[in-house]
Amino acid sequence: MKRSHRELKAWQQATQLVASIYSTTATFPQHEQFGLISQLRRAAVSVPANIAEGFARNGSKEKNCCISSALRVAHYRNWIHW
């Protein structure tokens, strides 16, 4: 039976990150709605999305590309010292 990306610990942690980012940014000032809040939320959502996309790819080169994208966004998150 084929495994699902939902079984990956990295994907599970990434979805927890999304929930955390959404709840934290809900407390930000309203004037950041279309700036920082939007940017953080889009970046957070892209991590599990890239992991899921990479998991669905057939070739290891394609998988590595998607996983690399997820890692870049995760490093960005660490850069802002969340």
Rank of each mutant, 00 (worst) to 15 (best):
Q39F: 02
V18W: 14
S38M: 14
S20N: 12
H31E: 15
I21S: 05
L71G: 03
V18F: 12
G35L: 10
M1T: 01
A26W: 05
A74E: 04
P29A: 08
V47I: 14
A56Y: 00
C65K: 07
S23W: 07
Y22Q: 07
T27H: 15
Y76S: 12
V18P: 05
V18C: 05
A19Y: 02
A44D: 06
R6D: 04
I51M: 03
E53A: 07
F28R: 12
F28W: 14
P29Y: 09
G35Q: 04
A19D: 11
G54N: 02
A10E: 03
F28M: 13
R72K: 13
L36P: 02
S46K: 04
A49Y: 01
E53T: 03
T15W: 11
N64S: 09
A26I: 06
K9V: 15
A44N: 03
R3T: 00
L17R: 04
V47K: 12
F55S: 00
H5Q: 03
T24S: 10
W82V: 14
Y76Q: 14
I37C: 15
L36F: 04
K61G: 05
I51R: 01
M1C: 04
K9R: 15
W79G: 10
T24W: 08
A70R: 01
C65T: 15
Q30M: 11
K2R: 07
I51Q: 07
R57A: 01
F55T: 00
Y22V: 13
T24E: 12
A70M: 01
V73W: 07
Y76K: 07
V45R: 09
C66S: 03
A74T: 15
W11G: 00
F34L: 14
R72F: 11
P29D: 15
S4L: 00
A26H: 08
Q12P: 06
T25D: 10
S60F: 06
K2P: 12
N58A: 02
K9G: 05
A19E: 04
W79V: 15
H75R: 05
Q16K: 13
T25H: 11
E53K: 02
A26V: 10
H75Y: 15
A52D: 04
R41P: 13
L17K: 10
E32Y: 07
Q13R: 08
T15V: 12
L36G: 06
S60G: 01
G54P: 04
R57Q: 04
S60I: 09
I67T: 14
S69G: 09
M1S: 03
G54C: 03
E7G: 01
Q33H: 14
H5G: 02
H5T: 00
A70T: 04
N78A: 14
H5W: 09
N58L: 09
N50F: 03
R77H: 06
A10D: 01
K61E: 04
Q13K: 14
G59K: 09
A44E: 05
P48V: 12
S60H: 05
R41D: 13
F34V: 12
E32K: 14
